[in-house]
Amino acid sequence: MQTSFWVRRAHKWIGLVIGVQALLWMISGLYMVVVPLEVIHGDHLAHVSSEPLTPSANRIAQSALAERYPGITSVRLKNMLGKEVYEIRQGSDAALVDAATGSKISPLDRDTIKALADESYVGEGSIRGIEWVTKAPQEVGKRPVPLWAVHYEESGDTTLYFSPHTGDLVARRHNLWRWFDFLWMFHIMDYETRNDVNNTLLRVASATGLLFALSGAWLLFYSFTRRKKT
């Protein structure tokens, strides 16, 4: 039987197999280019306060800090709610220390997290609830727990996640981000972690798509050469 018959048949069946995934690639890609990345990241919903540091004689010396907390690997001075604090790290562990007294002030309590959220949030909603999270939800990925989750009552269903150990705003999540994450799962074909862009399923689908394109190109070339002969 002629080669063109088999190529045409293969092209048809490959198209049926890859067509649904190609549609998902186009839909997810369209969403990614239509919705600005800064909106997806939630930059319009919350900002990180960065008050300038000024010289002060009231800070505890870092040498005294090292004596009180052995094994410190790094120290960072920062402002938190108008108060100077040291963020110290001992290996993978982090903690906040009052810069004036050297006393540890973390993990932060609910009231402090509420104050941090009020300082950071620039949206139009009000706080619906504050949750202590010990099992990381899908939307925060591999960020270490525990976390404080501050939920807002507004159309975007915004949630801000704070570290109880550093007070940092570690994630902004809202419905546009969640739609992005859902479509990203289909885009990279990683239905578990949603972050492996080099998985086997994606490689197989890409190779199948390439085979579909090559068979179509061959059929196009074949149709032109056959027309010239007739």
Rank of each mutant, 00 (worst) to 15 (best):
I40H: 04
A99K: 06
T101G: 07
G156N: 12
A213P: 01
S49K: 08
F162E: 07
Y121S: 00
L176H: 03
E87Q: 14
E51L: 12
Q138A: 06
G15H: 02
E153W: 15
G156P: 10
G156Y: 14
L16M: 13
G15A: 05
A205P: 04
D111T: 08
F180A: 00
K229Y: 04
G167R: 05
L147G: 03
P36M: 03
L65S: 09
L45W: 08
I60S: 07
E154C: 11
G91T: 11
L169H: 03
K229W: 03
V20Q: 03
I130A: 09
G129R: 09
Y86V: 09
I40S: 03
W6R: 09
A64K: 15
E87N: 09
K142Q: 14
R59D: 06
L176K: 04
L53C: 01
Q90G: 07
A171E: 12
S223W: 14
D98K: 06
S163C: 10
D168K: 04
W25A: 00
R76P: 02
E124T: 12
T73E: 09
W132T: 01
W25I: 00
R173Y: 01
M1W: 12
E84W: 13
S103F: 03
V170E: 14
A115T: 14
P52R: 01
S126E: 10
A94G: 05
N58F: 14
R226Q: 08
S206P: 12
R8N: 13
R59K: 05
A95K: 09
G123K: 01
N58R: 13
Q62N: 10
G19D: 13
V170H: 03
V122K: 14
P55T: 02
S106T: 04
Y191D: 02
L24K: 11
I60N: 07
A22I: 13
D98C: 06
A100E: 15
A22Y: 06
A95L: 10
G19F: 08
L96H: 09
M185G: 04
K78Y: 04
A117Y: 10
Q2T: 15
